[in-house]
């Protein structure tokens, strides 16, 4: 039951983009087409989960026993950067179709603050390994959901007449604000 609450809270209540302000650059940058949004979202789910699990192990078995907690930031970002490169090479070699659909998004993910953010949140909340896995998948799905919804709305808005100054990023941000307001309704459902 606790796990269920954790997952629901991570997807809806504390949505990684709309409530925690993480990963906004790709959220605005890759939400022009829903197919691109889908690819980016899936790549984030994939990498964020792997990164959270690996950084959890690094923290637990390497940093914590040696009292190196202050090196968390630098270690995590290096682990993520290496992981992204590795995933890219692995996909290219082993699963070419998946590489074709996700490959172009992978380099962007190194500096996606959602990925590093999820890893750090897992440490700050002191999650167990199972909680870390569930939380990172759910947060990634929350990112995917927000990104695909925004992309679908923006595709429709392409046909609408809006003032020229509002076109593009400003309108996307205002839309994100309205979506965030809608997600606000989930507050209090779970904490």
């Amino acid at each position: 039951m606790d796990y269920f609450v954790l997952v629901i809270a991570a997807i809806f209540v504390n949505n990684i983009v709309l409530a925690q302000y993480l990963g906004n650059c790709p959220f605005v940058g890759t939400s022009k087409e829903s197919s691109v949004a889908m690819g980016m979202g899936l790549a984030v789910v994939f990498v964020a989960t792997l990164a959270a699990v690996i950084t959890w192990c690094v923290q637990k078995f390497l940093l914590a026993p040696n009292n190196l907690g202050y090196l968390q930031t630098i270690t995590f970002i290096l682990v993520i950067a290496a992981l992204v490169q590795f995933v890219e090479m692995f996909l290219k070699k082993v699963i070419p179709p998946l590489y074709k659909s996700l490959g172009i998004f992978l380099p962007l993910i190194t500096t996606n603050c959602a990925v590093l953010g999820i890893a750090i949140i897992c440490q700050r909340e002191e999650f167990t390994l199972i909680e870390t896995i569930l939380f990172s998948i759910a947060s990634g799905v929350g990112f995917l959901l927000a990104l695909v919804v925004l992309a679908s709305i923006r595709e429709r808005l392409d046909l609408a007449h809006v003032p020229v100054s509002l076109k593009g990023t400003p309108l996307a941000l205002i839309l994100a604000g309205l979506m965030s307001l809608a997600f606000f309704a989930f507050k209090g459902m779970a904490s």
Partner: peptide, 14 residues
Amino acid sequence: EAPGAFVCLGLILA
């Protein structure tokens, strides 16, 4: 709250 942040930034960019 979060929605205000998005809308404010959007309006400033506009």
